[in-house]
Design a binder for these strands. Structure first.
Lengths: 124, 124
DNA sequence: TAACTAGGTTACTTTTAGTAACTCAAAATT
DNA sequence: AATTTTGAGTTACTAAAAGTAACCTAGTTA
């Protein structure tokens, strides 16, 4: 990708992968790809296992990168709608391909894990 | 992807993305995609910033999932060669597409970050 | 005899993620 | 009139993961 000793800025792939290199970003984009708009608690319900705090942190980071837009309606109780930006939608296409790969190959991966555990733990 | 309350096993996409949801896995596969075989220290030199421990941990995890194979030559000093398995190579294709997207859109993302920092930190 | 080598492991520190309780202000319920 | 509910978060705290640095192994070379 890049040479040695370069800064993050120089290396787009690494910089961007570092952003997705967390537990929730990719999954959040996939979920936002399924519906035009989603409110905070709708997202939270669909992304099984995410905590309120981590969803907030993830959405802020995606918003900062221009992948997700955040619309706040000044009501009480508050209403906030999240949606993918055009940039987010273009990334979604790549992530959908990745998701398809995952569905297609999950069995091979599970089998590999099985083999690995037998190889390293031969219960004597 | 899946409904609520399901276990990890039921949801291939989430399970697999959870594996790549770390700082080094994707980047390691991309590096192994550039050369048929790479030794531990060659990889370490190419993946800027990775520590010895994290490279070991990452490679073990990729090996466990059947994406990377590890060939140990019983010499002194030891020689260990890592390469992508056929499964790893099929994933590489998806990750290369993702890397291309990153190169193509890095500027838009950097501009978005710029806008975001100005919006949230208007130095009064 | 000491230093070097490649590919790790171990012990320890720092960063990040996860949990649970709390906030805000109006509207609805008791 | 006082209490509860509501959605979208914070805050403080704990657990887990990543980063750092020192150590190990056993043949070869200086």
């Amino acid at each position: 990708m890049c040479g040695k000793g370069e800064s993050e800025e120089c290396c787009p792939v690494k910089d961007i992968l570092a952003r997705f290199g967390d537990k929730w970003s990719i999954y959040t984009i996939l979920m936002l790809g399924k519906q035009e708009k989603l409110r905070f608690n709708e997202l939270k319900a669909q992304i099984t296992g995410v905590s309120q705090r981590m969803l907030t942190v993830t959405l802020r980071s995606l918003e900062e990168d221009g992948l997700v837009s955040r619309a706040v309606y000044p009501e009480i109780p508050p209403r906030v709608e999240y949606s993918l930006t055009p940039l987010g939608k273009s990334l979604l296409l790549q992530l959908l391909a990745l998701a398809d790969w995952a569905k297609l190959n999950i069995n091979q991966i599970l089998e590999a894990r099985e083999r690995y555990s037998k190889k390293t733990q031969p219960i004597s």
